Computed example of a mutant assay.
Amino acid sequence: MKWALLLLFIASAVYVHLRGRVRHRFGRQLLDHSTFMAPVNVLMYAFSRVPNTAYLDDPGRHFPELAPLREHWQDIRAEALRLRELQHIKAADGYNDVGFNSFFRRGWKRFYLKWYDDAHPSAAELCPRTTALLRGIPSVKAAMFTELPPGGELRPHRDPFAGSLRLHLGLDTPNDDGCYIDVDGIRYSWRDGEWTMFDETFIHGARNETQQNRIILFCDVERPMKYRWAQWLNRFVARHLVAAGASPNMEGDKTGGINRVFKYFYALRLKAKGLRERNQRLYYGLKYLAVILVVALIAWI
């Protein structure tokens, strides 16, 4: 049984690596967090009620409940612009946003509206219209305003869990092809009042090569599944793992368990980066050895 499970894990990881036209180098994918989620993600793909494509054409057709967001995009935009004036769309104040920590170094900023729960208290107070709209759409599990300033970028990456699809609604954008997201090699340029939906477990990255700022509404929408057991699994993982990544906008907002301990892991990460700068061969050797030991432990058990 254990060998069957090990082979299943390896097959799932290989499928995740080969999925799509754009791929990480094998060494990077081996250590990527999506590799460890591969068996669960393969089930999400296999029993998804929506197509497993990089972009999902016409989000409103697959998710009609999202229509109020597009209909009231100007109201949402007004609250986002007010937040920007108050400088509340920003990087995390400390090491308490493990999911997006690496993005902050290249200009990306955010203000959480909700994260697998009801609205953050700060969001309910500062964005009453937007949070009210989101409250009426239970399939939206997470939402935030995100900003990408001129020259900002997100390096190519893939998200770890396939239980959701990502919606981007343009609010205050350059309306220019120089400000874009690239998902599996296909570019989409944001426009005010327009939206796109994509599978964030395909490799994707973004750049703003214009001289204007970009603000969008960013939502994670629950992936609909063909069977109740698959929907239950999706929600179980979201509730017990993804929800632990909650990050605060300000004091009084919820901080998930993963983010409460992230600062300690980040201290170790800084030491690991120091080792990489001093001796890359030793650094990568130790990382690969750790993976081999984990696989060997699974085989031994």
Rank of each mutant, 00 (worst) to 15 (best):
D192C: 09
L113N: 00
C179F: 09
P51V: 09
A246H: 10
M197D: 02
G256I: 02
R129H: 00
Q87N: 14
I216E: 01
Y15V: 08
R214K: 13
H33A: 06
K226S: 06
L282K: 15
D57I: 07
L18F: 13
W229D: 07
S164Q: 14
Y55R: 13
D192I: 06
K287M: 08
L148I: 04
D75W: 14
S139T: 07
W3G: 15
P128C: 06
R158C: 09
Q212A: 10
G178K: 14
N175S: 12
T196S: 08
K114R: 07
P224A: 07
V183L: 06
E125L: 04
E153I: 05
N41D: 02
L126G: 00
I137F: 02
T131C: 04
E71Y: 13
N175Q: 12
K273H: 05
Q211S: 07
L293R: 15
L165C: 10
L282V: 06
L5F: 13
F265E: 04
G285P: 03
A246V: 03
V242A: 14
G245I: 04
V294M: 14
K263M: 04
N234M: 09
N234S: 12
F236I: 11
F161P: 01
L31R: 12
E65V: 12
F236K: 15
L169W: 08
R239Y: 06
A142G: 07
S122T: 01
I10G: 10
T53W: 09
K2N: 14
N96S: 05
Y227G: 07
L5Q: 15
H72N: 15
D75N: 15
R129N: 00
D117M: 03
T255G: 09
R61G: 09
R207S: 05
D172K: 15
L81K: 15
I137E: 02
L126R: 11
F26T: 11
I186Q: 13
L270G: 02
R21I: 02
H157W: 12
A4R: 15
A296H: 10
I216D: 01
W190S: 05
P174Y: 12
T201C: 12
G178E: 09
G99H: 03
L133S: 01
T53M: 09
G151A: 10
I298L: 11
W73Y: 13
K109W: 00
A4S: 14
E200M: 09
L56Y: 06
G185A: 08
L5C: 13
V16Y: 10
K263W: 05
H17Y: 12
A244W: 12
G107I: 01
D253S: 11
R77F: 09
L169A: 07
L81F: 12
F202Y: 12
Y116L: 03
M197Y: 07
S164W: 13
L83S: 09
S139R: 15
V261L: 11
L154G: 02
I137H: 04
E65H: 14
F145D: 04
L289N: 08
R276V: 00
K287D: 02
F262V: 04
V183C: 07
N234K: 15
G27M: 10
R77Q: 13
L43C: 04
G152Y: 12
